[in-house]
Design a protein around this nucleic acid. Structure first.
Lengths: 107, 107
DNA sequence: ATACATAATCGCAATATTGCAATATTACTA
DNA sequence: TAGTAATATTGCAATATTGCGATTATGTAT
């Protein structure tokens, strides 16, 4: 089908999966690492760094943005992206709660 | 395209993304939580619990298995799945290294 | 207002993922 | 060796994702 049968899953499972999906593409991981490393965070610099087209990078930025992990503000006609640390920490807590629950107890 | 341009990304980014992809579907999250909760971990019970067809569940189990997170052993003609804790912890460490590197420093 | 630079959106093509029915395989049992 | 129960694989249809060129929108400066 291509579409997940979300209705049969708990909200918790859906939420964990949605968070993980943000990090499930190497370009998005690279973008987040780049924004973290650089003091500038200019969108155009991200395009140069990542090696994908401007349109594609913009789409990946939108995915990360929709999850609330980054915020963009215009500086001149460039856009400057920054990590929303509070939100990012919240997502980490949720993922780590899932990790902590996952353990072996049989076989 | 549908295919990731992996060649332009670092191995680290690809690895983080591949791990995240395992957890990026609610059924796989639900399967891991179920295996963790139950003492039995019988494949058939997972099918009943998750609410997807046997074929679909088997495919999700294969994705998790390929990542090395679970191991299956036959008990009778049923298969019993268990978490590979060592591997799971390794993946956690890698993801957490990525989380720790991601921080705000501009804008 | 016009011109320029930069970023977002649209439309498309190619590939990936999800889901299931049908079939094949595996492990056990009589 | 059949027969049965349980799991894996195959083949297919439907939807999602990825990527990019072209276009549109946004912001700045002259």
């Amino acid at each position: 089908m291509g579409a997940s049968k979300n209705s049969i899953h708990s909200n918790y499972c859906i939420e964990v999966a949605e968070i993980a999906k943000v990090f499930s593409h190497p370009a998005r991981v690279a973008i987040l690492l780049y924004i973290s490393k650089e003091d500038t965070c200019i969108c155009n610099d991200i395009v140069s760094e990542i090696g994908l087209s401007q349109a594609t990078v913009s789409q990946h930025l939108e995915v990360i943005n929709k999850a609330g992990i980054i915020r963009g503000t215009f500086k001149g006609n460039s856009k400057c992206y920054d990590i929303n640390i509070e939100r990012f920490k919240d997502l980490q807590v949720l993922l780590n709660s899932f990790f902590a629950t996952t353990k072996a107890n049989c076989c």
